[in-house]
């Protein structure tokens, strides 16, 4: 017992060092669990608020630009409204369909470092935002919610390696898988498009109906380069993203109609 105590005393600093490093590594390798709980992330109430103050100060500097974007969006929404009013009255008459809703939110914190990016937005479970909902902006697709607390959520953007979504080549009608391998925050890869489809630079890529997270036809980007390796079945396509994350201020979280039901069915 005495020798054990002496040993501990002699190596106490080394032991403390090892314990702290093990704790750090544990946190690192189970980070997804901690992020999903919203505990110890910027989706946390205190840090979210700090981010909010920061975003407010920054927001004033880009008011003019922001105003212009909102006006443009307003105009587009008015157009949409005109075409949809009739369809909606019909839907309401039948009464049974749950409608897709958009929850408006502000970006309060944005973090990007070589291969990891995160947004914190100021809407959470109190506004019925949940994990795994699509997030879009007036520029196009943004990402998916990955952690939710009462008033804040963490969004994993398209430009992170864990993000994947089904995308549609609008002109050709073919779908592929949109992934990101870095390092540019303006381009992503479109995979699984077979080479017999004719793809040109400049073709539009939008979200497909195959994705449970997004409504169909939301802008993703345009084809920036087409590479066809003769020995492979699939193209290497680079997509220029329409969303500029540096200018992102306001976003919408999509609460898909019957999303839970669909997910449960597809899990079976």
């Amino acid at each position: 017992m005495k020798s054990l105590l002496r040993f501990l005393q002699q190596y106490s600093v080394l032991l403390l060092f090892l314990v702290l490093e093990v704790v750090a590594l544990y946190l690192f390798f189970s980070r997804n669990r901690f992020q999903q709980s919203g505990f110890l992330t910027t989706a946390n109430a205190v840090l979210g608020k700090i981010g909010k103050v920061e975003a407010k100060a920054e927001g004033y500097l880009s008011l003019r630009q922001e105003n212009k974007l909102l006006l443009e969006e307003n105009a587009r929404l008015h157009e949409l409204l005109a075409t949809h009013t009739i369809a909606d009255t019909l839907l309401q008459a039948t009464g049974k369909t749950e409608q897709t809703r958009f929850v408006a939110a502000n970006v309060v914190h944005w973090f990007h470092r070589s291969r990891q990016a995160f947004l914190t937005i100021d809407k959470g479970s109190a506004d019925s935002v949940a994990i795994g909902m699509g997030v879009v902006s007036n520029m196009g697709i943004v990402g998916v919610t990955s952690a939710v607390t009462e008033h804040y959520s963490l969004v994993m953007p398209v430009i992170s390696e864990d993000f994947k979504v089904n995308a549609l080549l609008k002109k050709q009608g073919y779908t592929g898988l949109l992934c990101w391998h870095g390092p540019s925050e303006h381009t992503a890869d479109l995979e699984d498009v077979v080479q017999h489809v004719e793809v040109e630079v400049g073709d539009t890529v939008v979200t497909s109906a195959l994705s449970a997270l997004f409504t169909e036809g939301i802008n993703i980007g345009t084809i920036e380069s087409v590479e066809a390796v003769p020995t492979e079945a699939y193209y290497n396509l680079k997509v220029r993203l329409t969303t500029d994350y540096r200018r992102l201020r306001s976003v919408y979280v999509i609460r898909q109609a019957n999303q839970k039901e669909r997910e449960q069915l597809e899990k079976k």
């Binding site: 060092f17 490093e21 544990y26 946190l27 992330t41 910027t42 973090f111 995160f118």
Partner: peptide
């Protein structure tokens, strides 16, 4: 390290390095 990790949502990463 922990404080910095929380601000960047990279839990454990900077903590590990700072302790070292």
């Amino acid at each position: 390290g922990l404080l910095m990790d929380i601000s960047t949502n990279t839990l454990g990463l900077q903590t590990f390095s700072c302790v070292l």
